[in-house]
């Protein structure tokens, strides 16, 4: 079996097992209502994690994701409530701003040869700071478009709701999967993650691809901000604080190698759902502190890093030897 797939199978197995155990304890968890909420509640995390997957696949990291989400929610709230724009126009502006921000970070990473960790750390402070400057206080959004969106959903058999933002997340995952595995851009991302030197020698447009990766990540963070705004009907500079770390955790738990080159976008979906499942379980239990989510995620993350280390250090040595036919 392709060793890149092994962490994904492990994650999927753990997710199934965890879900079955939760259902055994709380049979009510086996319902479309819970599944629908799982998708809705984690929509913004999922969308941001798709962008993060591309960044990590290329061997980088994007710490600005949470701040970009926070900034986007404030910007949208300001544009709708103070400027009086239509939400759709505000969304477009926010996405363009986020994309430009990502492109600038990508360009800095490539042309100035600064590690992505540093550049996106600076980006994080910039975006978070800019959000506070726009408005230090939370701005509530009241607009008929928002109420219309919150009322638009597909009723699932069993009473569950597939909301607009949940569908948006699923769409983003589908888009991410095709982009990663079926396009030249995706091939270039994996190539850079495998070996940037080799990729450059093989003619991969490293500059264009790097800028593309961070533009994609920031744009998707912006889209996650849009979803967050729709989800909470408010803009606040401290929204999604530290969310980039949840996204990184989802990507790694989903089987993507932190050093780049190996992983699947579909794995990230399972990673996001696993995090959501832990949270749902804690809500069902009712007695556990919500901080237990962090402890479980921390444990899982550590387990997966160890697992990857084992898979990628032992089997790399075992090579097929093929003689002359």
């Amino acid at each position: 079996m392709n060793r890149a797939l092994r962490p994904l199978f492990a994650t999927t197995a753990i997710f199934m097992l965890a879900y079955l155990m939760a259902v055994a304890q709380f049979p009510a968890m086996l319902s479309t209502r819970v599944v629908g909420n799982l998708l809705t509640d984690n929509a913004f995390l999922g969308i941001a994690a798709v962008g993060m997957t591309f960044v990590i696949l290329s061997g980088g990291i994007d710490l600005s994701v949470g701040a970009v989400i926070g900034f986007t929610t404030v910007l949208i709230a300001v544009l709708i409530m103070w400027v009086g724009m239509h939400p759709l126009a505000a969304f477009a502006v926010a996405l363009i701003v986020a994309a430009a921000f990502g492109a600038a970070m990508g360009a800095a990473i490539h042309y100035l040869r600064v590690p992505s960790f540093i550049v996106t750390l600076a980006g994080m402070f910039l975006a978070r700071g800019a959000a506070s400057v726009l408005s230090p206080d939370s701005i509530g959004i009241k607009h008929e478009f928002y109420s219309a969106v919150s009322k638009a959903y597909i009723l699932l058999p069993g009473g569950g709701r597939l909301t607009t933002i949940a569908m948006l997340m699923l769409l983003v995952f589908a888009f991410g999967i095709v982009l990663a595995h079926r396009t030249r851009f995706g091939a270039c991302v994996y190539a850079i993650g495998g070996s940037e030197t080799s990729a450059a020698l093989m003619g991969v447009p490293v500059a264009r691809t790097t800028i593309g990766i961070y533009t994609l990540s920031s744009t998707l963070a912006g889209l996650a901000g849009v979803v967050f705004s729709l989800y909470t009907s408010a803009g606040y500079s401290l929204n999604a604080l530290g969310m980039e770390l949840d996204a990184i955790a989802a990507v790694v738990i989903g089987g993507t190698l932190l050093t780049g080159g190996y992983g699947l976008v579909a794995g990230t979906f399972i990673g996001v759902m696993l995090q959501g499942l832990v949270q749902t379980y804690i809500v069902f239990d009712g007695t556990l502190s919500s901080w237990w989510t962090k402890i479980v995620i921390g444990g899982l993350l550590f387990m997966f890093i160890v697992l990857q280390r084992l898979i990628f250090s032992t089997s790399a040595r075992k090579r097929k030897t093929v003689g002359t036919p």
Binding site: G193, S195, S198, L201, M202, G261
Partner: peptide
């Protein structure tokens, strides 16, 4: 000498 291909693909 160092194969300049992508080991992960």
């Amino acid at each position: 000498q160092e194969v300049n291909l992508l080991p992960n693909r």
